[in-house]
Amino acid sequence: MRRPGLQSLVLHAALVSTALISLMPLGWMAAAAFMQPGEANALPPHLLPRDPTLQNFVTLFTRLDMARAFLNSAVITVLATVLSVFINAMAGYAFAKLPFPGRDRLFRRLASALVVPAQVGMLPLFLLLRELGLVNTYAGVLVPYMASIFGIFLVRQYALGVSDDLLDAARVDGAGEFRIFAVIVLPVIRPILATLAAFTFLSAWNDFMWPLIVLSDGHMATLPVALASLVGEHVQDTELMMAGSMITILPALVVFLIFQRFFVRGITAGSVKG
């Protein structure tokens, strides 16, 4: 290589500018969230709040019912994550390790349905939940999050690597199938369960269209839905909207930073085996 110094300089300039572009909108959001009313519309723009205030967050949580939206989002996301991990782990393990006639054909059929966009079933699903009285309930919004073909797929691919000898040894020792699953299999497949949990958490927390449809009552709204309706009335209140955006984005970012390793695994696994 000639002139590695110059090469490295150009490379890192490109790396840093791309990083700035990635962070700029989020940085501006975080700054504006702490600005006094009207300051975000100053000319020339302020990049940092001159006189930082928490008032925007106080208004959101006291006057505008964002506390309820935060609670709704938290309850729905946590329930979705826990339920989806258990339900998909059991099914994925069965597809990998419990033989029965037609198993692999059934799995291939199921996997081919991965291409069907969720929107195709949304209207009938809404009508069905309406008949069942589940519109505007946590159960109603949770229903399509609980079992996912992608989740079953992830767990199955990983569980294929569990040693049969280990399972057979447990059977010889007289352990039942449920006990084998709970005591031997679950600890071994824990990494992929963390991947699945991270994926489910982020997609349930960030989801918009389905909660928008099924949670039309303002008290049941999740954060994204509440935020989208708030921007209709408070579009002039830039600082307030940025505070609202921030409390919506922050939990997702924190979960991502903690589970990053597992998240990356899920994305590359999906692409290689997909």
Partner: peptide, 26 residues
């Protein structure tokens, strides 16, 4: 990590942030 961060952010919030970034005057 920095390049990936926007992927995990909430789309609705992102759309709202950019609405302001795109404001013709401010």
């Amino acid at each position: 990590t920095i390049y990936f961060a926007p992927v995990v952010t909430t789309l609705v919030s992102v759309a709202i942030i950019w609405r302001y970034l795109y404001h013709p005057r401010y």
